[in-house]
């Protein structure tokens, strides 16, 4: 069974806004029977240009149905400009998250919304508008779409791209092309990071204070959820010495927690040069 949130199951069991709006202002259709999921979204605007009525029909799994239902709830009452800003992440967040392999369901929702808005604005086809070259022939995914989803969701691996867009999930021949797109996104990210003003050199006291704050705010609440805790013992240059407490002390996986949580968070919020060690008994 999938680890669906209660909200996903609720929207699957009791989908909101099912059907088709009569004489709709916008219609968006994405997916197909061959792809395994498809969504038809219709909406009507009120006199203020807000989405007064939004309905969906979906062929797909529990999370596809839940994502469609969530989308309609999410955008109701929005202006088209507001709705155009909705990302697949907003849909997933609304549902309290989706399993990674099911993220493409949230992307399908955003695509249908986009197609419906485009149709209203241009009067053109309500089918998904393909921008740019098709990269994944099996599922008809374009480079533009992959680029957009990779940027919106901070994706770094081909597997993630497949989970989010289906691209690469068929014959797999397009995987090198997806790699190339990911490399481009990564380059953009690096450029953006480089153009950010260089962090001011911290004094030792500032650094210790920031480390302490990060531990209290970002790390300890995570550990406490599992009955563990962490204490800052010493800071010497870029060496941070900590000690596990509670359930974490002597825990078999604590060494992973050390690298993947403690060090990762401190590097993210304080300095990428930090090395974290456990206090030697």
């Amino acid at each position: 069974m999938w680890d669906y949130t209660g909200k996903v199951l609720d929207h699957f069991r009791n989908p909101r806004n099912v059907g088709e709006v009569e004489s709709p202002d916008g219609i968006g259709e994405v997916g197909s029977l061959a792809c395994g999921d498809a969504l038809k979204l219709t909406f009507k605007l009120d006199k203020n240009g807000r989405l007064a009525d939004v309905k969906f029909k979906t062929f797909g799994c529990a999370s596809a149905i839940a994502s469609s239902s969530a989308l309609t709830e999410l955008v109701k009452g929005m202006t088209l400009d507001e709705a155009a800003q909705v990302t697949n992440k907003d849909i997933a967040d609304y549902l309290g998250g989706l399993p990674e392999q099911k993220m493409h369901c949230s992307v399908m929702g955003r695509e249908a919304l986009e197609a419906a808005i485009a149709r209203y604005r241009t009067g053109k086809t309500g089918k998904k508008i393909l921008e740019g070259k098709v990269i994944c022939v099996c599922f008809g995914v374009t480079g533009e779409e992959i680029l957009r989803v990779a940027r919106d969701n901070n994706l770094t691996t081909v597997e993630q791209v497949t989970n989010y867009t289906k691209a690469g999930g068929g014959c797999g021949h397009c995987k090198p092309d997806i790699e190339a797109i990911l490399a481009r996104v990564e380059q953009e990210r690096r450029k953006a990071a480089a153009s950010r003003p260089a962090p001011q050199k911290m004094t030792v006291l500032q650094k210790i204070k920031l480390i302490k704050e990060t531990i209290d705010r970002e790390i300890r609440p995570l550990l406490q959820k599992d009955g563990g805790d962490l204490e800052l013992i010493d800071v010497a240059g870029d060496r941070v010495v900590v000690s596990f407490r509670g359930m974490c002390a002597g825990c078999q996986v604590a060494q992973f927690t050390m690298k993947d949580v403690v060090e990762a968070k401190l590097r993210e919020f304080v300095s990428s040069d930090l090395v974290v060690e456990e206090e030697k008994q």
Binding site: F12, R13, G36, F59, G60, C61, A62
Partner: peptide, 24 residues
């Protein structure tokens, strides 16, 4: 015209255990 996983979840809700060849 409908998808296997969705059918399985509804079946499961009434206590019926089956399986599907659907992608999902």
């Amino acid at each position: 015209y409908i998808e296997g996983e969705a059918i399985l979840y509804h079946l499961s809700d009434i206590g019926v255990a089956a399986s599907s060849g659907s992608a999902c």
